[in-house]
Design a protein around this nucleic acid. Sequence first.
RNA 1: GUGGCUAUAGUGUAGCGGCAGCACAAGAGAUUGUGGUUCUCUUAGUACGGGUUCAACUCCCGUUAGCCACCCCA
Length: 416
Amino acid sequence: MKKIYSSIRGMSDFDPTKSLAFGEVIEKAKNVLKVFNYKEIILPILEEKDLFIKSVGETTDIVERQMFKIEGKDIVLRPEGTAQVIRYYLQNSLHKSSNFHKFFYTGPMFRGERPQKGRLRQFHHIGAEAIGSNSYYLDAEMIVLALKILDEVGVSKKELKINTLGCDGDKIRFSQYLKESLSSKKSRLCDDCQKRLDRNPLRVLDCKSQQCRKEVIALNLEKEHICGDCQDKFQNLLVLLGDLGIKFTYSPYMVRGLDYYTDTVFEISSDKLGSQDAIGAGGRYNNLIKYLGGPDIPAIGFALGLERIFLTLAEKKLEEKLDVFVATTSQELLGLGINILGQLREEGLSCDLDYCAKSLKGQMRSAQKKGSRIVVILGEEEVANNTLLLKDMDKSIQKTIKKEDLTLEINKIIKA
RNA sequence: GUGGCUAUAGUGUAGCGGCAGCACAAGAGAUUGUGGUUCUCUUAGUACGGGUUCAACUCCCGUUAGCCACCCCA
């Protein structure tokens, strides 16, 4: 038996129906982004590995074991977009051209995880970044924008979770505190958390294990680890969101897994997704630009997972209907048929004919299957009289027209 | 990355250690230039590679892919 190649693990094909839905979602999202004045940038799929080590974090799973490397080079397939946008921003010294920028991007991202529903090795993000302001009004805009996009594309049920991690100083202090206060109880934490305590103590906070949760609650954490400024800002943001009518859940134990996040973090989830329930997430990354060698400029962004968005959408029967199908009574007339197609396509009408030598009956069947609104029938009789037979498929009526009236008559039917 | 489950025409599904069925879809046709309903016919399958056995789609191992939970994240 001949070998049939299959796609690479975790990388799926989009069939015509999915592609149509994909295009529709992207288009709707882009319209919202445009209304919010975000500018699209299209960036390469390959980046220097070090960019992600420095931004996402050396000890994160993404960097430690999920990146696809180009053999023999320090180049990887991008696992996410934020670091890349900042790379672009700094490379072009955009802070010198204006003190505030809004960008968005869409495209494939790559992470070598074990695939599951809602978790692919090649998946698609649509992400937005706003660079140059630390205002909580901007935080609110970001959240409103993410929700608005999801509304527009038809994700009805979703939950917004929000938290603040505090500024860099807060994060360091709090990590230290957790390390110290939990070290005596280390043996009671799950295996994962014992490791986390050394490497990334904040992650212990959102562990799902009952035992770890108990220990975290026992610490009786207030928000004292967050400095006054950050607390005020966060409070203001929550009030503002309330005023804007945004429903949210304050999730004090939510910690995002990418090192660059600071202050406000949020996540939007759906209960239709099973284990991989986050359809979008984002937050501030006020230190990233400085950390990547640029000036001290605050920024915030989010990313939505397109495949996960699709999973939440009820499967719609999306079909592209054909305006006109051209049927001929013999193969010899195909040349004339093709001329007609050319004429119709100039008018922007979608049309097609049969290349498989089907009988007229067969052609009618396939016209019907393609959802054709109109069938143009071309036979010897029509050729002799310089006419065409025009059939309205919905009404099941047909009439003979003069060849030169073709587009006129078709438009009459379509616009009726 | 860890543990587990699954794999049968294009799709959805039966079945059995001894001839692989069904439905839908697809193609052809039903007095010859016309679609949808109906009827007839046709095409098409045990994911891949090994092993056990007289005999494997069935049992075992491996590979690949998908799924579930964990992990991670969008």
